[in-house]
Structures are given as structure tokens and as C-alpha cells.
Simulated assay, not measured.
Amino acid sequence: MVRLPLTPAEVERGQRLGALLRRARGERSMLDTALAARVSPETLRKIETGRVATPAFPTIAAIADVLGLSLDAVWAEISQPKPGTRATDSGHHAQEQLAS
């Protein structure tokens, strides 16, 4: 199977996802987080660094669960409009949830 190259938007979304997961993980070790989510530490590292820009949904769901993130909050964070465009109320609300 040939995999199509990622679009710039997919790469950017993957980078936002990785940054979100790193922030949510805080001081918790990557190893502890990965084991609790039942993914390999290498997979978590690749997602956090943006090397895997389009991880499988069950993988993200498991990591988000371990980190106490709702999937709605994750989606709102990674689908933010580019700078210079107006954010939606739901995106703003999700950012407030992540900050608390």
C-alpha cells in the first residue's frame, strides 16, 4: 500500500497534537504514560514530536484518557484555525478547559 504524503495542514495538526500531549503529560514520565495507555514509549515519543502526524484514533483516545483530556478538548486544540482567523466559541471553551 502506498501512503500519500501528508499535507502541510496534517503536519501542522500533528505538531499541535504533540505539543498538547506534552503539556498535558507535564512531569509524568513518557514511559509511565505510554504503559498506562498501552502504547509503546516509542509511539508516544513519535506522536509528541510530530513524527507521527496522523496517529490512529484508538491510540489518541487511550493517551488522552490517561492524561485526563477529553477527546472534544483534543479535537478543539488540534483543529484551531490558523493565526489571523477568528476562533470559534467552542475552541475558546476547550482552551479554557485545558488551562484548568
Rank of each mutant, 00 (worst) to 15 (best):
M1H: 15
M1E: 12
M1A: 11
V2N: 15
R3L: 14
R3S: 15
L4V: 14
L4Q: 13
P5V: 12
L6W: 13
L6C: 14
T7L: 05
T7K: 04
T7P: 04
P8T: 07
P8F: 10
A9V: 13
V11S: 09
V11R: 11
V11L: 12
V11A: 07
V11H: 11
V11D: 07
E12M: 10
E12Y: 02
E12V: 06
Q15F: 10
L17W: 02
G18H: 00
A19K: 10
L20P: 01
L21S: 00
R22G: 00
A24F: 10
A24G: 11
R25N: 12
G26I: 05
G26P: 09
E27Y: 02
R28G: 07
R28Q: 12
R28D: 12
S29Y: 02
M30T: 11
L31V: 13
L31S: 09
D32T: 07
D32S: 11
T33I: 03
T33M: 04
A34N: 04
A34T: 09
A34L: 14
L35R: 09
L35P: 01
L35W: 09
L35C: 06
A36L: 11
A36Y: 04
A36D: 09
A37H: 01
A37C: 07
R38G: 13
V39K: 12
V39L: 09
S40G: 07
S40M: 03
P41H: 06
L44N: 04
L44G: 04
R45M: 08
R45E: 14
R45D: 15
K46P: 09
K46Q: 15
I47Y: 09
T49W: 10
T49P: 08
T49Q: 12
T49L: 15
G50A: 04
G50S: 10
G50V: 02
R51P: 02
V52L: 11
A53L: 02
A53S: 06
A53F: 05
A53D: 08
P55E: 07
A56N: 13
F57W: 15
F57C: 10
F57K: 11
T59I: 05
T59S: 07
I60P: 01
A62S: 14
I63G: 00
A64Y: 08
A64S: 13
A64T: 05
D65T: 13
V66M: 10
L67F: 08
G68I: 04
L69N: 01
S70L: 05
S70P: 03
L71Q: 15
L71R: 12
D72N: 15
D72W: 08
V74W: 00
W75M: 10
W75G: 02
W75A: 03
A76S: 14
A76N: 06
E77N: 05
I78Y: 00
I78C: 00
S79I: 00
Q80S: 06
P81Q: 10
K82M: 03
P83I: 02
G84E: 13
T85S: 15
T85C: 14
R86P: 13
A87C: 08
T88M: 03
D89N: 11
D89R: 09
S90C: 07
S90E: 15
G91M: 07
G91C: 08
H92K: 14
H93W: 10
H93I: 15
Q95C: 07
Q95E: 09
Q95F: 00
L98R: 01
L98Y: 01
L98T: 02
L98I: 09
L98S: 01
A99R: 15
S100D: 14
